[in-house]
Design a protein around this nucleic acid. Structure first.
Lengths: 190, 190
DNA sequence: GTCTATATTCAGATAGAC
DNA sequence: GTCTATCTGAATATAGAC
């Protein structure tokens, strides 16, 4: 691969190769899911040997763990009114550029137990934070719904690529969804 | 398995065995998805031989096709106002008893191309019908959102079993979602 | 440090015995 | 019509050569 390395030390070379493998794995996991992504395919796409992938990451499971490690959502805080805007802003961000690592986890969330747990944990954390602010007796259901709705819209856009959702401007989507989130974060009992 | 069959003809016996295999396959596909469900596991759970499953259904793909064949949604028609109630009624039904066949398809929709196409086709059909009624210039986006929201809530309840969503009474969920659907089916431009 | 060769396991599918 | 035995291919993982 590398010609006579000018400044790249051996350790630096290794770091770059490892990063390239990881980026390739993220991409393939996000497109085809855990089970249908093979170590061999990752190696081929990253232009390295399959054995090297194993050597660096230990196992397919560990490779997936690293490839799907996403930065956790911003903590939510403030008044119930601010809450709606924060949720919409977070969703807007996910609609514009959801990181490949997150898509890798979402892609496998229905079929790979680790991914299921990852998504559940992430949503649960958010539900806890939100429920503290809402403090209604059906808070957990309301926050579960905002999470499920966000999840459905993200999946519909990035993974299923539904007509109408796939190419719509994020701003327009957010505007249409604002009443939904407002009604769900409103404190009035049904 | 069968003792001295009293009234069951050989053809009847076969029909029953085939139905038992299909029901078992539906269950396992809906729990673990396409890739992690093996012919062998289906055979074991149905108390038949793996060869018999192949003999009856030809291939794993064909078994999945039959196991995940769901009855299509009711056609939607009427005025925009009736439309909201119909969507909510359909969702209420899915929250109470989503058929195992549908869950089998939903479980694999992110990782198995056939299932992806099945879900996309089902949602597209519904979007077409709804868009005809709405006749707003952003109709396709609005109907895409109602589909994505329904999908997210069904997945959150049945497949991810999110806290708050998992055990909530369908009536209560529907009430909380009514404003969402009303705002999305309202004809006013944003 | 990188890659080759291979061991091991397990899946779907097939052919043929009872 | 039902089941046993087996073929074939592919995947992860390992051991060792360069």
């Amino acid at each position: 691969m590398a010609g006579p390395a000018s400044h790249t030390s051996r350790a630096e070379q290794r770091r770059q190769t490892e990063a390239r493998i990881l980026a390739t794995a993220r991409q393939l996991f996000s497109e085809h899911g855990y089970d249908r992504t093979t170590i061999r395919a990752v190696a081929r796409a990253a232009k390295v040997n399959p054995g090297l992938v194993m050597h660096y990451f230990g196992s397919k499971e560990q490779l997936f763990t690293q490839a799907s490690a996403a930065t956790p959502d911003e903590p939510i805080s403030g008044t119930p009114e601010q809450l709606t805007e924060q949720l919409l802003a977070t969703l807007h961000d996910k609609l514009t550029h959801e990181p490949t690592a997150t898509l890798a986890m979402l892609r496998s969330m229905l079929t790979h137990p680790d991914a299921t747990e990852g998504v559940r944990a992430s949503l649960s954390r958010q539900q806890e934070q939100l429920s503290d602010i809402l403090s209604a007796d059906d808070a957990l259901l309301r926050t579960g719904l905002t999470g499920a709705i966000s999840l459905g819209v993200v999946i519909g856009r990035h993974l299923l690529q539904l007509d109408g959702l796939r190419d719509a401007p994020p701003d327009q989507i957010i505007e249409l969804l604002r009443p939904c989130f407002e009604s769900l974060t409103a404190s009035g009992d049904s």
